[in-house]
Design a protein around this nucleic acid. Structure first.
Lengths: 242, 242
DNA sequence: CGTGTTATTGAAGTGTATCAAATTGCGTGG
DNA sequence: CCACGCAATTTGATACACTTCAATAACACG
């Protein structure tokens, strides 16, 4: 909204060699699920992609929207969240640089089932649907890469689902702490964010964190920061709990 | 019998055979995710596939096994179930004729995360991994079909997960009844099976079913059979509940 | 320095698991 | 075909983890 003021035309000439908006210079080209396959692919992407910057809390797409293409994250952090019929918000996934976004709905020809929100300032490339489909037809190895990603997403989703059922709140919160710390340690997570990830309420998170602090797993005496001081013991506690 | 007399003649020449083990005569060839794409594909499958019959309760593969290929169901009913660390069993999916089985683990190069069990007598074809991979390389449309299936599985898993959290047991059981009746109505479901699908216990299922009967949604006076007598009203109850 | 957001604490209510015991229904073999 | 045995179902009592609501405190931000 505030960002309606667009940048001047300095980027207009694609021949500028050190333009960081070019795929050629993209830090995450090699870890990106599409662009890492072959030079021809990212050169194809190059010509049609649109790169946009999203500020924290900005929405990339909404649950219910029609997918028009594929997004890839070249910097920042994005969360996928789903609001249920009951009005509760659940975080499905957190995605960092190199990850693709919006592919599930694109391939199943369904509307987005989740809303994508930038957690921190993020640089995101958009590739139109027809280009993506062309790449799939001509570069089967890209499709297989996406297959792998979807397969892993599915495993994670099904694991998370079953673990929600038979693990109690404190175990889920412990897992959330470990997961979020391992994958996105630079981020300062709020109690609400942890609750939405662990499938519980902020109050329960707070009470559980107090317990964890008493037991020496974490430290939260520095403002609101949650510091894992004994991750190994927390992991053991999880597995010993059965 | 009469048919025994006729058969030998027909079977002498494989080209004119009505052998139901041939893909050509498979009832579900057109709805099968792999074989429905093009004649060349199922002819390729034909030469390498192995068809096996599984009796009820027999296991097709175990959680933790290494995937060696792909299964497709040509008759019967199979369930995918996962045993969690806590020892509880959860039903992830039910699969009928035409569905593929074991593809998730195959594509992510992971072990099976679930155990596949025949619920009723089932005819299942096995296609070796190298054949599947060859098909993918040469027939991109097959890969895209699988992409679609995986994408839908993922949506369903994520939906089921979030709905487990904020729907109460009676809502989940109502959904289970409707889903199982719509997809596999011929099956007589036990309270335990419903519980494993809905993420609750047999006792809670029983108490809820008694409530549903009192409210006129179902009838269970005929032995152990659960008969949906007012599905529409049950659906409305679900949506009105929020 | 105030104002809104996030965090904290307390008390109360409840849905659901758990355990145990009784009963019913079903297939199987005598 | 009946009786038997086992598994599935039913019912009751108890416990408790967690949500919910409400009120206060701490912090961040303009």
């Amino acid at each position: 909204m505030l960002r309606a003021v667009k940048k001047p035309l300095e980027d207009a000439n694609p021949c500028h060699s050190h333009d960081k908006n070019l795929c050629e210079n993209c830090m995450y080209r090699l870890s990106n699920i599409i662009c890492s396959t072959s030079p021809e692919v990212w050169r194809l992407v190059e010509t049609t992609k649109q790169k946009t910057t999203f500020k924290p809390q900005q929405t990339i797409f909404y649950q219910g929207n029609e997918p028009l293409g594929l997004f890839t994250i070249s910097a920042g952090l994005v969360k996928l969240e789903m609001t249920s019929e009951h009005g509760q918000t659940h975080t499905l996934r957190y995605l960092g640089p190199g990850s693709a976004l919006g592919y599930r709905s694109l391939f199943s020809n369904e509307q987005y089932q989740a809303t994508a929100v930038a957690v921190e300032t993020s640089e995101i490339c958009f590739i139109p649907k027809n280009v993506v489909m062309d790449i799939f037809k001509n570069y089967p190895e890209v499709t297989i890469k996406i297959l792998e990603a979807l397969s892993k997403d599915l495993r994670i989703a099904e694991e998370k689902w079953t673990s929600q059922i038979d693990k109690d709140a404190s175990e889920r919160i412990a897992e959330a702490l470990i997961f979020l710390q391992e994958h996105f340690s630079h981020q300062n997570w709020t109690r609400k964010e942890i609750a939405e990830w662990a499938g519980t309420t902020p109050e329960t998170v707070i009470r559980t964190l107090a317990q964890f602090e008493k037991e020496g797993y974490i430290d939260q005496s520095q403002g609101r920061v949650i510091k894992l001081i004994n991750k190994q013991k927390l992991i053991e506690k999880l597995h010993g709990a059965y």
